[in-house]
Amino acid sequence: MSAPDLRSQAVPRPFLPRRAVPVVLGLLLLGACALSLGMGSVVISPSEVWFAFLHRIGLDIGAEPSFRADAVLWDIRLPRILLGLLVGAALAVTGAVLQGLYRNQLADPHLLGIGPGAALGGALGSISGGVQGAIAGATAAAIATALITRRLGATRSLDPSRFILTGVALGAALTAWVGFIVFASDSTKVPPIQFWLLGSLTGSTWRALVTVAVIVGVGLSGLFFASRILDLFALGESEARHLGVDVDLATATIVMAVGAIVGATVGAVGVVVFVGLLVPHIVRRFTGPAHRPLLVSSALGGGLFVVLADLLARTLADPVDIPVGLLTAAVGGPFFLWLIRKPPRGEPT
């Protein structure tokens, strides 16, 4: 008999059953949303939040909510929380998808230059079109950038890290252009540079939420549909082709969906860094590598992460709103360092 093989234990299995992962994340997300609704510069008690909700859906039970609480809940907090949730879900899922597509743990929509590209389009769009213009511009620019990164990074040597290096280089140049546009244009129309670099959910509106929800909703359902194809990409591109995947078509479609999703979020809330990197990695430990469960739980986990980060962003230094990306970066930066120091998958630790 051979000696006991320690390598098989290199990937520790967490105690949580795989099927329970989305349930737990969903409950945590609901809890985080409820908590976030009540907290802020105006504190609203859980019962008041609950009764306000019941009154809104037409059930006249319990105390009538105060006008102020009602306005804060419906016009400010709820759209902000939902937008945060949507952005988190969008970034986490696209991160997971890009990591699968490029077979690289370091893939992330912003590191691949898609975020900076979207920011450039968003800044240009906001000059004439306000928030809706920013979303439209960012979406178009992000799709273009995602395709360009794919094209520039593609080599015959099949080295997936080329995509990351290409994206980082492209992103740096694009970010500089965002800066030029911001400083050269009317500051009442174009959001400031820290919005594009770090993101902010301040001033989220239902209108922006609906636009983002439509684009992200369509894009995410397409990506969930492609989850089995993403599994096959783990074997390598040529193996995926041997198994009947039209690799070029699938890649182009996936990359464009990712671009649209990321662009819509950047247009609405700026670049929120590290969500796409951090969340899928933690989620994958619990769900395993198969993309269907991974994408579902990443969506929930990403939503949870951004909702909590934004809760901190607006309560830590109240009444000042901290850019939400500052908080995600504060957690994500050290995590990134840990990740690149970690030995590659499959090697003994």
């Binding site: 783990a234 390598g236 193996e239 041997h242 198994l243 198969a290």
Partner: peptide
């Protein structure tokens, strides 16, 4: 390309080594 996969199976000389799936899942992809 989808029909092609019902006609021929291919083993490449050097495939990707760091596939995160378990063996049964990899074979099932066939």
């Amino acid at each position: 390309v989808g029909e092609l996969a019902l006609r021929r199976a291919v083993l490449k000389e050097q495939g990707v080594a760091d596939i995160p799936f378990d063996v049964r899942a990899v074979v099932a992809m066939g």
